[in-house]
Each structure stands twice: as C-alpha cells, then as structure tokens.
Write a protein that binds this DNA or RNA. Structure first.
Lengths: 214, 214
DNA sequence: GAGTGGTCTAGACCACTAC
DNA sequence: TAGTGGTCTAGACCACTCA
C-alpha cells in the first residue's frame, strides 16, 4: 500500500505512462482509487490535482478524470527581474536612466541595464500615471522602474512575449552592437483590473538566452 | 469572516501588497491565522502554499513563513508541441522528414514543419537509440518525432532555452529566409534518469514570437 | 527540545454538469 | 437529478530545523 500523496502521484503517473490508463480514457473516481490504494480520498485528490496541473490529466466535475490526449509538460520561468538575472551570473548589476518625459498621464522612460559595466539590456517603457501616480516621485536612479513596479504595482493580468528582432537604431546606440544584429527582445504589458499599468520593450545584448525550467 | 481558501489567499495577498506584512517579515503562523480568520488550519495552509508557489511567500518548517523580498511572479508556457502551436493559429499542420541517418546509437533527424504549407520551423534532432530503441521502427512521416517522443519517452529532467540567432545555411535553405535574418531558436535536451534521450534545435520562421502566460 | 509547516484521515457539504 | 470532483473541518502525527 502506498502512503503519501507523492506515492499516489507516482503510481498514477506509472499507469498513465504504461498505458494502463490509455490516453483519453476515463480513470477510476477518487473514492474508488482511495479504496484501492488504501488512503483517504483527500490524498488521492491531492495527487490527481497535481497531475492535472502538470497537464497529465483533465478533470471535470461530474464527467470524471481523463488521461490527457497529448500530455503537456509545462515550462516555467520567473518573470525576469534584471538585477537577479545579472547577479545570478555572478556579475554586478547597475542601471542608468537615459531619458524620462511625461506626456498625457504617461511616463516614458528609456534606460540601460549593465552587467559588470557591460550593457546587458536596453529598455523602453511606458507607465500609466493614473494607475501608479507615486512613481512620478520615485528616484529611478536608485531603484529601477522594473523593481519598483514589481514591488508596488500589483497587477492582475499580463502578457509576456519574446521575439528575435534585428537591432534597432536605439539598440545599436546603447548596446553597441552592429545594426541588424539578432537580438532577443522581450515585450511585456501588465494590466490592473481597469487599465494598462505598464508596457515595456527590453532588448537584450547579443548572445542572451532565455532559459526555462521544465 | 472569509470562507474559501481563495478568500484567505486574497486576504493574505492584500496584506502583503499593502505592506501590512512587510517584505522579509515573518507572518503569523498557520494556527494563529486560522483562529483569526475563522477557518481550519488546512484552509490557511492551502492558501499560503499557493502563494508560496507563486513566489510571494517563503516557507520553512520551524522557521515560519516570510514575505518574499522580491515577489517573483512566474510565467508559464506549455512545452511546445508544434502541431498544437500551428493548429492553435487556425492553420493546417504538416511536416516532412528531410534526412535521417543512424550513427553510433544516435538517430540524426532533420525535418520541416509547415503551417498551411508555409515553412514554420526547421528541426535538427538527435535521439539516443539506447534509451528509446522503438523509435527506429516508427514511421516518422506519419507522426513527428516530437509528438512520438512526448507520448512515449517520459523524461525526468530537461533544459529548454530560446535564443535569437542569425539564420544558418540550413535555416536559409529550408525556411526560405535571408541569410543572417534574426530567428528565434529553441534548444532543448531531455534526460532520463541515466542518459540523454533527445536533443533538438528548432529554428522558427522569421516573425515567430514566444508567448508566456503570467 | 520545541515550534513550525507538511501531510493524512474520516466525514461532510457544496458546485458543477452530463444525462 | 444524480454522480463527480472541489473544498472545508477538526484532529492527529510527522519532519524538519532552529536555538
């Protein structure tokens, strides 16, 4: 008899991968599994819920639990905080504001991020001052807009997107790379319940890679 | 009085974001919160565990629960299965093997993936035949190596990495893009307990973006 | 050793939804 | 409307780790 929910999870995963529970098939309900495996239903629930979160199972009330047709592993990354990215490489992080202007309730910022004094990423950002008016008074030379916002502007939803783009004039100037060089570019927008909070384009210096954990 | 664990979670998040529980600070233990909020300790546990998984809290036995110094939102993506990426865009997926050779227990594959008959991604892959010998007999024109492996080669660990690279000769030839064009390139390796199972380089056609869910 | 989170249990009720 | 997963409860024991 299995004991912990991790054991139950491992046993269920074994049955999925061995096709004992075939893709698309309905598996026994929680009460039945609990009886079979000699544990409480809550324990089975914990195990199956975790497998569903990992994409192995699809669960619906009344309809039961099915093995996912194409098991989707999920990859995770933490939303990048540049300081930590840089310090994680064992380098010294610093940053500098290039420009700052306010226009119709929108704060426009341009900034540069450094790793050991080498340009690491060039940032262009808009911040909605109706949503986070306090940022107008923050000394952004001391704390980067990114860090301040992460800590002070809780958001509900957001988009995050990476693309490969040729270096723009702005990128060339600040990252000191050849015009048209392939750069990894991050675009991110975050929203509160009611409005856009901030939108940012971050161009990384050549050679930057985005790593995800599976 | 709050009722569900989602309410408890929301209340805890409010206290974090309002600095009522300051960054780095110790928060009350589970039993105390359960008393204060009028629910069972298990309910508090569920809420705080979820917040810890999202990076808002750091929990350690005996040491208690602290507010994370820099709240890390996590972004997720499903490990790309090209068919679903393409079909999710409302296009027809197809693929074609370009080359296939076996060398010292390593299956070398080159392939192309299409969206509505336009090249979508070009793949170069090695598969370790000691780990998944069955793949030697699979008709990879019918099911792509990617799909077959996802379903048949459960793996333990893996790396997943995106970079912006200039189009190589291989990319230029098959994606029909200009030499040196900035391409999004995915590199992925997966391992079983004991050995590498497969390694792949996937170059996406120009304009491809990687979207993550926050 | 003692305090904290981690988990299990048995039972209960609820929410959703296929039938 | 009945069956399924989702959740809550109260209590208990365990595992880890700080002092």
């Amino acid at each position: 008899m299995k004991r912990g929910w991790l054991d139950i999870q491992a046993e269920a995963l074994r049955r999925i991968q061995s096709r004992e529970w075939p893709p698309g098939g309905l598996i026994p309900n929680e009460a039945e599994l609990a009886r079979e495996l000699g544990c409480a239903r809550a324990t089975v629930n914990r195990a199956l819920r975790a497998l569903a979160e990992d994409g192995w199972l699809e669960r619906r009330r009344r309809a039961g639990t099915r093995v996912a047709l194409s098991p989707q592993r999920r990859a995770q990354m933490s939303v990048p905080v540049l300081r930590q990215e840089v310090e994680g490489m064992g380098k010294v992080y610093s940053h500098r504001i290039i420009s700052r202007r306010i226009e119709a309730d929108l704060l426009h910022l341009e900034g540069l991020h450094f790793a050991d004094k080498a340009p690491f990423a060039a940032e262009q950002r808009q911040v909605n001052l109706s949503e986070v008016p306090q940022i107008a008074d923050v000394d952004l030379d001391r704390i980067s807009a990114n860090e301040w916002l992460v800590q002070n502007a809780p958001f509900d939803r957001g988009t995050l997107e990476y693309a490969a783009e040729p270096a723009s004039a702005f990128d060339v100037k600040h990252l000191k790379c050849p015009r048209g060089a392939p750069l990894m570019v991050l675009r991110r927008e975050t929203f509160s319940e009611t409005a856009m909070v901030t939108a940012v384009r971050m161009a990384y210096a050549p050679g930057h890679a985005v790593r995800l954990v599976i």
